[in-house]
């Protein structure tokens, strides 16, 4: 089973000096935080805020590459979690065939946002993630923590 997720926000994790992308399902029942690097976070932030940078960023280039050959991103799926690393798959259509490409979740999300493609998560990943400790920690976060990246 897979669940469709929305990108709810992006926040800085000062403990790990990294960024967290918060995915939530449509009922706001399940949450999936994904830790990403600085440049990936910045790329996701630009897409969330619909900023058109003067020069194409790496994921804009990625999208332009696929557009140039008429390949289309149909969906991305966060598929697995193993040793604190998430795995994702990008589903593409190209000349009437479907292709599945392995990816880091950060690249998959950054590309999905630019392609207006839905983001899904395997239920097993969401289950593994919902440890009470983490939920509590995230609930205690203030709205201000979900601010813009360039603050």
């Amino acid at each position: 089973m897979i669940t469709q997720m929305q990108v709810k926000g992006l926040m800085f994790d000062p403990y790990n000096n990294a960024y967290i992308v918060i995915l939530r399902d449509e009922d706001q029942a399940d949450m999936l935080p994904i830790w990403v690097g600085k440049s990936e976070a910045s790329s996701i932030s630009l897409a969330l805020e619909s900023v058109d940078p003067p020069r194409p960023m790496t994921h804009d280039f990625m999208k332009a590459y696929l557009d140039a050959v008429n390949a289309k991103v149909i969906s991305v799926v966060i598929t697995d979690l193993s040793e604190n690393t998430y795995f994702a798959k990008i589903h593409l259509t190209y000349e009437d065939s479907e292709y599945t490409v392995d990816s880091r979740p950060s690249d998959a999300i950054a590309l999905a946002l630019r392609s207006e493609a839905p983001i899904f998560a395997n239920e097993s990943v969401i289950r593994k993630q919902t440890s009470e400790e983490l939920d509590q920690w995230l609930e205690n976060l203030k709205p201000e923590d979900f601010g813009k990246l360039d603050s």
């Binding site: 994921h59 990625m62 590459y65 593409l92």
Partner: peptide
């Protein structure tokens, strides 16, 4: 690298699609 970087992903698109 243990996980594909962004540029590895673009190369991977090319390999899958024959570009």
């Amino acid at each position: 690298t243990p996980r594909p970087m962004s540029h590895d992903l673009v190369r991977s698109f090319g390999e899958h699609l024959g570009v």
